[in-house]
Design a protein around this nucleic acid. Structure first.
Lengths: 267, 267
DNA sequence: CAGTGGTCTAGACCACAAC
DNA sequence: TTGTGGTCTAGACCACTGA
């Protein structure tokens, strides 16, 4: 006989993990659980809350009760690399050109730059900066659910006014390389955060699922000094996605070095 | 006058964000909040719960009440790359040889391999596999707080029995390269999960902070086929860490390609 | 419109750290 | 010893959905 919310949750978690309850199945009703475990309604509610935060169950309202949530079996692996897509634009490997993806909304604004992005750009936090924000919450295709904020360095926009326009994202890297007369050096930093309510809503995340945050910087040398031209802040469900990178090796190898696995750009 | 738990939480969140309450400061007591907002104790408790899950406040028990939590201002950036450390072993760039880090506990066991690791190794889930698990929860140094599980492919252990021993992790990559007569190809996949209670305890994580999960595979070609010799599952606080990678470029560049930024291995 | 879960109130007992 | 938050009970009202 379970007495605490955690015990009730553990019991239900077990039933789900042992597949006695499968995706889409209804859980016992709250009143049922109250009688079954001899605890109060609040306690049962707390237990269900834990499971909801873990993304194990969901409640869509109304009479159909709480059901076991459909969970992705494996994560979609995104291999991170840059190449030209089929339209000739630079883009992340294996990502379609976003302008063609249904449900994409892009807004271009000028707003104070948040602290972490400011650090990357090497400017002061709060400086007004051009931001190109893209939301993709396409309910039909979870591959397309991501948020992307692109922050441009003011010096780059000054030198290259075309960046300020909504000229399509793909082209900006070519414009930058032409301007700098050198290839861009890209780097990505990956971390995770708990989503804000707005992010959770836009990406259709259940509460409790962390948000994977990938920040890509594009750097060129101007007058001999590195300039971070753009910081690109990408957020996606950590439950849905994993991002993949080849590891670089420093120092001489004793054997001839092979390229990264052949399928790196193809899945 | 706030009426719901979310509203009470939002009001307190605001005070913290506006720095009216700073790290270490005591929040009003629950009874104080009950009177201040005209809500019940349960509602206040729910509000404090939200803030705790966000990692904004903490309660250490006893009479000192709920306090504003000290939050890391910026994340520690870990540049991911492989090099030989000062002892001559392969290791992640800028990571000391772990055997020298105080508080490290390593256990070597044989146990059923979990599904996601099995997929990477290309073997069946549940197969008994040698696992080398390292826990580092050093309370003194947050740089050292991480969990590492190393799973070895059975075929590799069979061909190279030395891998089964507790021979120190650093050396295994050299042994593998000598065996395969080729350099290892490393790749890392990054995602995030909500920590299990055990992980949260070991890493001193407050509830609600996601766990960054980095899985590195070491691959060599044996008889012309790629073999994933080891899968290395590293977990660390997403609030404390960010991992950094250079981005590879596919296709011809119009300008001479520079190496990744100079400090890539040095911070 | 019946039954679901969501949320709040009110009151009680407990463990714990600091005084 | 005292005051803190942690947790449970019991009862009430609400919004929503699907039969």
């Amino acid at each position: 006989m379970a007495r605490t919310a955690e015990e009730v949750a553990a019991e239900l978690r077990g039933r789900i993990q042992r597949a006695e309850l499968r995706a889409g199945d209804r859980l016992p009703t709250m009143t049922g659980l109250v009688e079954e475990h001899g605890v109060s309604r609040q306690t049962v509610r707390e237990a269900l809350n834990l499971l909801k935060r873990e993304g194990l169950v969901e409640y869509r309202g109304g009479r159909s009760g709480t059901t076991v949530r459909e969970r992705p079996v494996t994560r979609l692996v995104r291999s991170r690399g840059m190449e030209r897509d089929h339209l000739g634009y630079y883009s992340g490997a294996n990502v379609q050109h976003w302008r063609l993806v249904p449900g994409t909304r892009t807004t271009v604004t000028t707003e104070p730059v948040p602290g972490d992005i400011a650090d990357l750009l090497g400017i002061e936090a709060g400086t007004p900066v051009i931001a190109r924000k893209r939301l993709n919450g396409d309910p039909e295709n979870e591959l397309h659910r991501q948020l992307t904020d692109s922050w441009l360095h003011p010096a780059a926009v000054e030198a290259l006014p075309v960046l300020a326009g909504d000229s399509g994202l793909g082209g900006i890297y070519d414009r930058i390389e032409e301007w700098a007369e050198q290839p861009i050096v890209w780097e990505e930093g990956v971390t995770a955060v708990t989503p804000s309510p707005a992010e959770a809503g836009a990406l259709l995340l259940p509460s409790g699922v962390p948000l994977l945050r990938v920040i890509r910087t594009s750097t060129v040398k101007i007058d001999g000094r590195p300039l971070v031209v753009e910081a690109n802040d990408i957020r996606m469900s950590a439950e849905l996605f994993s991002v993949r990178y080849p590891i670089t090796r420093r120092g001489a190898a004793r054997w001839p070095v092979q390229p990264a696995s052949a399928d790196f750009y193809t899945n």
